[in-house]
Simulated assay, not measured.
Amino acid sequence: MAERRLTLDTDARVMAWIGPGGVPKVADLDETPPRVHEADGPEGARSVVPGGTAGEFLVVGDGTVVPLRWTAGGVGSGDAIPLPDGAREVGAAGGLIAACTGDALLTYDGRWRERAALPAEPVCMAWQHRRRSLLVLTRDGSFTRFADEAQAARDDAWADPATAVYDEVLGALWLAHPGGDARTLMVRVEPWPPRTIYQAGLGAGVRGLTVAQNGEWLAVRYGGDRPIELYNVSGRRLFRPPPTAGSAGNSGNAASGVAFTYDNRLVTVTEDDRVSFARLPARVDVRTAPAGGEAAANEFFEHGGDLDIETFWEGQMYKASKPRRRPSPAAAGGSR
């Protein structure tokens, strides 16, 4: 079965994906347990991407895109918008819809307008919220950024990645195995021009990446039957995802989708559209996880990690809530 590709809204509180038969599904992650709602989408719906504001998504079908809007009353669909011929990437750009063809970046404001020429096929398009600009990585290793005008930068080391994903927190793109290189690179695009600042050893066969809201974690999807794994950026370590309620046998399965919520939880949706959560370790717990290879790391997550995490956070909360009082003059050796 194909893997669920999960998408969060701009607040990381509402999640959407494409269910069986091309039906868009939406869940409010602040509900416990989350209820899954079906929505109307375009014919042949194949992917869903974040919209421009909280609770909004764009469902991409065969030649059209349909806006979805989540509210407390449920989910509603907007009118279908025809995509430009040859559209490869679709996303939100502030209050507009953006698309990339094989050679151009366009935005939609009632009609499609070309904003910048692209030197090669697009690999990844992202809206940079802080910069209010569109960013496109193309197959030849070029970055094109468009706000009021287009800027471009290129490096052969960034060409032909297996996959790429944008990290808004760090202002960077993760590129998996560009040019067949065994490494995964983080390319910082803020400030401009782009530059490689980090290399991760994720192994061969990376086919997809999902980045956490705080920039601390990557969910790594591999080819074949290899399970999804989690990579901690600061600890430089790979872990198997922890079992989660309702999906203990499937949380690392290739048919399960994963995403990261705003409050540092891993959310999973399995083949039967069941949504469940697991708390991710704090940085201190990753540093103290047992060394000794994959088996030891998995032992930490599956049997010791949760208890250690809760103990750590309870200690922090106790310290923060314990009142501090000034000593009385008598206790300080003074007089009234």
Rank of each mutant, 00 (worst) to 15 (best):
E3A: 15
R4D: 13
L8M: 02
D11F: 00
W17I: 03
A27H: 02
E31A: 14
P34S: 08
R35Q: 15
E38D: 04
E38M: 00
V48I: 03
T53V: 09
L58K: 05
V59L: 01
T71C: 06
G76D: 10
D79I: 01
P82E: 15
E89F: 02
V90T: 04
G95V: 02
I97G: 04
A99G: 11
T107G: 08
R113I: 08
A116N: 03
A117L: 12
A117F: 06
A126H: 02
Q128C: 04
H129F: 03
R130E: 11
R132H: 12
T138I: 06
G141P: 06
T144I: 10
E149Q: 04
D155H: 11
A159F: 00
T163D: 04
V165I: 07
V165R: 14
V169K: 13
W174S: 05
T184R: 09
T184N: 01
V189M: 14
P191I: 08
P194V: 05
T196N: 08
Y198Q: 05
A200L: 11
N214D: 09
E216S: 06
D225F: 02
P227M: 05
P227V: 10
V233E: 09
T244Q: 11
T244M: 14
S247E: 03
A254T: 15
A259L: 07
T268C: 11
D273Y: 06
R274L: 07
V275W: 02
D285Q: 06
R287E: 11
G293E: 00
A295K: 05
A297R: 02
E302R: 12
H303W: 10
G305Y: 14
D306R: 13
L307T: 09
D308A: 07
T311S: 13
E314L: 09
G315F: 14
M317G: 00
Y318W: 12
K319E: 05
R326T: 15
